[in-house]
Amino acid sequence: MNYFISPTLGVPPVLVTTLRELDFRIMLLQQGERNPIKSKVGLGLDFIRDSWYLFRQRRALQQAGVIVVNSYVALSVLLLHRLGLIRYRKLIYFGFFLHAPRYFPLFRMLFRMLLTEQDMIQVFSQHELMLYQQKLGLKKSRLVYAPLPYQPEKKPVATPLTGRLPKAYFFAGGYTNRDYAALIQAFAHRTEQLVICGSSLNHDLPAGKTYANITVFRDLPRKAFKELVAHAQACLLPVKDDTGAAGQSFVLEAMAFQKVVIATQTHVLTELIDQNQTGFLLADMRIELPLLLRQLQTGEFDLVQMGREAHNKLIRDYSDEAFAHALAQVIRPCLEKQTYQKQ
């Protein structure tokens, strides 16, 4: 029996559909969805709880075929396998990424201890294929790529924010790996309106209103966040570190609403954004963003047409169909009969 193991069903629906078509059994560690934005303590408690659940389910995994596992739960599965408590032919760690470079040494050690020859790691960008070879010491044959899928959104519904937003504004949102301090500095003495939606864990966001043209929200519901994207002039993505994770989901959501994204230039975002065609990539937000805003004021770029191009790129490269095709190419060879791994 082949299994897909995930903390919740909060994963791309096309992933579950594709795996079910390939005869995978779905094993959820918790019904419903979890808040993806948590403190380190909260994440640690989730890890312990999920590891205990897997330990209790170990008999069902004694003769597993291929296991596709989502999120940090992969580390629990790898550990139980190393301890000889579960057995499988092959494991695919789905959607692995690292936000901060300081964790590279830790994961290099963990993977050296836990990975076996048949284990694979799937990533959402071409850049990560080389990055994790260099930083984590992983073999090229262990790493596979499939695009991050995004289902185009329907028209957003009205929320309590409706009618409270500026008539025209730029929007920046998200939690991890964001450099909001640089963004606020770039807008500090300008007339354009900036709306930010972050988390209470974004410590570089001011607690009160510091500038008349900058509005800050924290921990808004999903529908309200979507409304902020849908009605923005353009979306902004200031990134701290050029690592494996760089706000890809935020970019894809903006593209779904035909919005241009102005982002910090990173290797991953270079794959998503075509410079001056579907968006803008800036080396330094503090210096370059005010200059770009002046260009946008004069109409040098057609944001509407660029937004259409961004949407076309989303449909072409990051649709459910593109993802399902890439994932099937990764998994089908793994389903061929193999001998069980030795711990």
Rank of each mutant, 00 (worst) to 15 (best):
Q62N: 12
A328G: 13
R316I: 02
N177P: 13
Y318K: 04
L78G: 04
M109I: 13
I262R: 04
S125N: 10
Q62I: 08
N177V: 11
P290L: 06
L161K: 05
Q118M: 10
P36L: 01
D242P: 15
I26Q: 11
F323A: 02
L114G: 01
I37S: 04
Y93H: 11
A188M: 02
E336K: 11
A186I: 04
L296Y: 03
A224C: 10
T243N: 06
M27G: 02
I273C: 07
T176S: 14
A100F: 14
A188L: 02
S249E: 13
A188K: 07
P105H: 08
V41I: 12
F187A: 01
E271M: 09
A158W: 04
P333W: 02
R56I: 00
Q265N: 14
K40L: 12
T278G: 13
L54V: 06
K226Q: 07
F170Q: 03
V123W: 07
P333G: 00
E336Y: 01
Y103L: 14
K139P: 05
F250T: 11
G174C: 06
I196E: 02
P160M: 00
T17Q: 15
N35S: 13
K38M: 00
V268E: 00
A232V: 03
R87E: 08
D274K: 13
Q277C: 14
L335K: 10
N202P: 06
G208F: 07
D242R: 12
G65D: 10
Q151D: 14
P147S: 07
V41E: 11
G10N: 11
T116Y: 10
K313I: 09
F124V: 06
V11Q: 10
L138M: 11
N177R: 09
I184M: 10
M27K: 13
A234V: 04
S199C: 07
T191N: 14
L292M: 10
C235A: 12
F171V: 08
L205P: 05
K240V: 14
Y103P: 01
M285V: 15
E192D: 12
F187M: 04
E271K: 10
D284T: 06
A100Y: 15
T266C: 11
S71D: 14
G95R: 02
V239F: 05
I26E: 11
V69Y: 00
V73G: 06
G32K: 12
A328D: 06
L131E: 08
W52H: 13
V261C: 15
E192G: 00
N70P: 00
E271D: 12
Y169P: 11
Q63D: 14
Y72T: 09
A64W: 01
M113A: 13
A322L: 06
I214F: 09
V157H: 13
C334G: 01
L143K: 02
G163C: 08
A310N: 05
L114V: 01
Y145W: 14
L110W: 00
F124E: 05
Q62M: 14
N2L: 09
R87M: 05
G163I: 03
V66P: 03
L61A: 00
R59M: 12
L115S: 02
S200T: 15
L282G: 00
Q248W: 07
E192T: 04
R87H: 15
V330L: 12
D320G: 12
N2W: 05
T17P: 06
A263F: 03
T215M: 10
I315G: 05
I214R: 09
G163T: 04
Y53N: 10
R89T: 03
T159M: 08
